[in-house]
Design a protein around this nucleic acid. Structure first.
Lengths: 197, 197
DNA sequence: CCGTTGGTGACAGTAGCTGTCAAAGTTGCT
DNA sequence: AGCAACTTTGACAGCTACTGTCACCAACGG
């Protein structure tokens, strides 16, 4: 199902080229001011073909977040079932924390985030996807062997953890000092956690 | 600035009529399947005039939430500055809880929420607005006299409280039993709270 | 009574996105 | 190599939310 190899490679290459062109234009003129036609023209393809490869203009920016989300869900699944949710979530967040370690990747992530924050529709779509991951994480946690929590509580728990993640994320994207992401996250989570376990 | 009285009344009446027509159609065929043209035609006006009164199709559904948000911010502002944030927020949430008391209003709110949940763009816009209120609430709390919390912490705190609100909201909209909203909210908030104060 | 002001409709245009169809290119099998 | 099956592509047309423009009409004010 992974395609005929060659075709799949071609697809990825095209997709990468589109993404690169789009990012250039977004950085240059902003997300909203950049039209799909401009991106398509820059890559040298018709608008129709663009949409066959990309699906949505939003996806160009949010695809990265989706990949991260998938990994988060997978990571949470591979945590011991006996572990308390809060700790498990902190470990799942490691995929976000880890990406901050490489300065290049970090800057890229900041850029993406700043683009997201400038566009209303984009920001909205981002939040919607965050909600989706949260639901998936809740399902994972509820499905664990010795779980005793109700869905409502679990939803609130996961939501709270994400609130911490989001707060720290926002904060670190702002100041340009040394990246204190991991430390800040631990601090905020600790502030929210104690009763929660 | 409040208009010439007469005109303002007319405006409100027209707006109400549009809203009513829209809600009928949304309930009948769903949000996405209902076009702006259909709504405009039902009220007997041109599409252009519709947009002069409404601004956005989304607004027809989300205006109610905006009003609630405004009241929440106002309520939070009128709380004693010495009160701990968590308690203050619980009181601010009273505007949501209170609306659940009148069965008519409650059913209407449930309907609205169910419409929001069916449409992707609508859901996304809803989340974006929730984020906006949260930011406003954070600013209020940070502006209080004897506040010692950092912005990050406050953001996480407010986010956690909203996670609880959202979880309970989702839960109560599902089951049709007696409305246990207030009790559930208190329970979930208590579960999240203790360390927080 | 007339000028200003505000609402309205008709028209046209933009941006994102989808369906359709025929042409061109690829792949696989013989 | 040669042919049939499958994919990809571009051109065209269409839909929906939304905005700009302009002329028209009605109410309000002096």
């Amino acid at each position: 199902m992974a395609g005929t190899g060659v075709r799949e490679v071609a697809r990825r290459a095209v997709h990468a080229e589109i993404t690169s062109a789009a990012e250039f234009l977004f950085r240059e003129q902003g997300y909203d001011a950049t039209t799909v036609d401009q991106i398509a023209e820059r890559v040298g393809m018709s608008q129709r073909t663009f949409f066959r490869h990309v699906g949505t203009k939003e996806d160009l920016v949010l695809a990265e977040f989706d990949r991260q989300s998938e990994r988060m869900v997978a990571d949470l699944q591979s945590r011991p079932a006996g572990e308390d949710p809060w700790t498990s979530l902190r470990h799942a967040f490691e995929v976000v924390v880890g990406q901050r370690e490489d300065p290049t990747v970090r800057e890229r992530a900041k850029l993406m985030m700043s683009i997201v924050e400038t566009s209303g529709t984009l920001r909205a779509a981002y939040f919607d996807r965050m909600d989706l991951v949260q639901r998936q994480l809740v399902d994972v946690l509820l499905g664990r062997a010795h779980n005793t929590e109700s869905r409502v509580i679990m939803r609130a728990l996961v939501g709270a953890a994400f609130a911490a993640l989001h707060a720290v994320s926002e904060n670190c994207d702002l100041d340009d000092g040394p990246d204190t992401f991991a430390a800040d996250l631990d601090q905020v989570l600790a502030r929210l956690a104690p009763a929660v376990v």
